[in-house]
Amino acid sequence: MSIFRALMEKPWMVEGVIDDVYGVDHKSLPTAKFGLRVFLVVATVVFSLIVVTYFERMLVPDWRALQIPLVLWPNTALLILSSIALQWARVSADRGRLDGVKSGLLLGGVFAFAFLVGQLLAWRQLIDLGYFVATNPANAFFYLITALHGLHLLGGLVAWARTSAKVRRGVALDRLRLSVELCAIYWHFLLVIWLILFGLLWFT
């Protein structure tokens, strides 16, 4: 791998301008995209640790399986639609179709909001059934997982709102492309995380 070759370089041997012929090619990737990737790694660590602690906690005899609110199914569908809509916006941006970007962004945001409302409904249902945060460990994890995931999505919606504002201001498509792409990547990430967490809640 090129990173190993870069680390084998003997810097005291060569004098003169040398470009980064191997190693991390810092021109091919936009800085913001790189920064987003670093953030996704950090977020992955957070969610992985939650999953690990979940499994660990399941081993204790007082564990009771969770009563999953059925509304999570339509919610999952909403999140998938939201991701698809943003992917549509991203592809449209690549192909230079502004109307596609506009509708993709709009739909993506609406579906994401609907997902968050749906998650709150799921909380409402559990509370009505008498399952509070401290009622049993599985419920505590359910609230924690959905809250953390929801907060990440809310953060994404801030980025989405800024991108949408740029669209409304009539910023040129060339300068929008990266923002739209970053939103789409983040949405796909949160979708994958949600599918894993939902699977975890469903199957255990």
């Binding site: 870069a6 810097p11 040398i18 980064d20 190693g23 810092h26 990737l29 800085t31 920064g35 953030f39």
Partner: peptide, 24 residues
């Protein structure tokens, strides 16, 4: 810290000047 850390990592990997290879 995460906000700062994103900056430090990305700056080191992406914003080095010409000729500044990792091993320099």
């Amino acid at each position: 810290f995460t906000m700062g850390g994103l900056n430090y990592v990305t700056t080191v990997l992406q914003a080095r000047t010409r000729g500044m290879t990792l091993m320099r």
